[in-house]
Amino acid sequence: MSANLHGKVAIVTGVSNEGQVGQAVARALAARGASLAICARTEANVVARAAELKAEGANVIPVVASLTDEAQVKRLVDETLSALGRIDVVVNIAGGLSVYKPSAEVAVDEWTREVNNNVLSAFLVTRAAFPHMAKSGGGSIINFARAGNAQANMLPYNVAKAGVVALTRTFALEGKDAHIRVNAVAPGLVDTGSNVAMMQPKDTSNWAKRDEIADAVAFLSGDQSIGITGQVLEVTGWGYA
């Protein structure tokens, strides 16, 4: 049974390039009735994704923001409340893998960028949305971790996603009294254009699919998952993480 999200408002970050996870998640939530505020750093990209969603019947606003900047995160939350009235769901997708090289070759600025893009962004958005969700009776926050054990040549990303798990479980403990559920979806390797271009695999048939991940997010967004918090749901496709 598909999650019913009619009447709910969701913030989805990282909805930028076509063919990425953010686009799939936004489409899945909109198809189930949610109104959306989608966010990315590049205006042309997020506006294009919003136009696609509107053409499919979605109620959606695009917001341009760098989510490692506290003031811009506040603006994302304020614009969502102004346009859509409430916040019921937050999906922290922004971040991802951008440094793929042997650990000894990782520069400090690369390390800092990867950790901030994945952990700091999720922290700032969650912290900004938390009191508004509590005021309206609770909701669901879904972060993005990674499935399986650490993988070579991905040190900053591995560390960042471990941090996302700790962030998820801590906010889950602190959100119980306010009925705010906080979970993480942990994909294995995903068949996005950027992953394929960076890693140049010979075969992606066993990788997780974007729509599979989107369905997991939709489940955690709706009332069907009302008793689940502080958990990490792995979505690995038919292969290994």
Score class of each variant (00 low, 15 high):
95 G>D: 00
134 A>Q: 09
89 V>W: 03
126 T>L: 12
149 N>M: 12
181 R>I: 06
127 R>T: 15
174 E>C: 05
142 I>F: 01
175 G>Q: 07
139 G>I: 08
150 A>M: 08
94 A>M: 00
152 A>V: 09
96 G>E: 12
159 V>M: 07
118 N>Q: 05
105 E>C: 07
108 V>P: 08
125 V>S: 01
106 V>T: 14
164 V>E: 01
131 P>T: 14
150 A>P: 15
149 N>T: 06
106 V>R: 14
129 A>H: 11
108 V>Q: 10
167 L>E: 08
159 V>N: 02
157 Y>A: 07
141 I>V: 11
96 G>N: 11
180 I>T: 11
151 Q>M: 07
145 A>W: 03
131 P>G: 10
143 N>Y: 06
153 N>W: 07
120 L>A: 09
118 N>F: 02
175 G>H: 05
130 F>A: 14
109 D>C: 01
138 G>L: 04
176 K>F: 12
156 P>C: 13
124 L>W: 00
117 N>H: 11
147 A>N: 12
147 A>L: 06
180 I>C: 07
152 A>E: 15
138 G>Q: 04
175 G>I: 02
168 T>F: 10
154 M>T: 13
115 V>G: 06
145 A>Y: 05
135 K>D: 15
115 V>W: 01
174 E>Y: 03
119 V>C: 12
106 V>G: 13
175 G>F: 03
108 V>Y: 10
141 I>R: 05
135 K>R: 14
177 D>F: 00
160 A>C: 02
130 F>V: 12
133 M>P: 00
166 A>R: 06
114 E>V: 10
155 L>P: 00
122 A>N: 03
112 T>A: 15
107 A>E: 15
142 I>L: 04
146 R>A: 13
90 V>P: 07
180 I>L: 09
147 A>V: 04
157 Y>F: 15
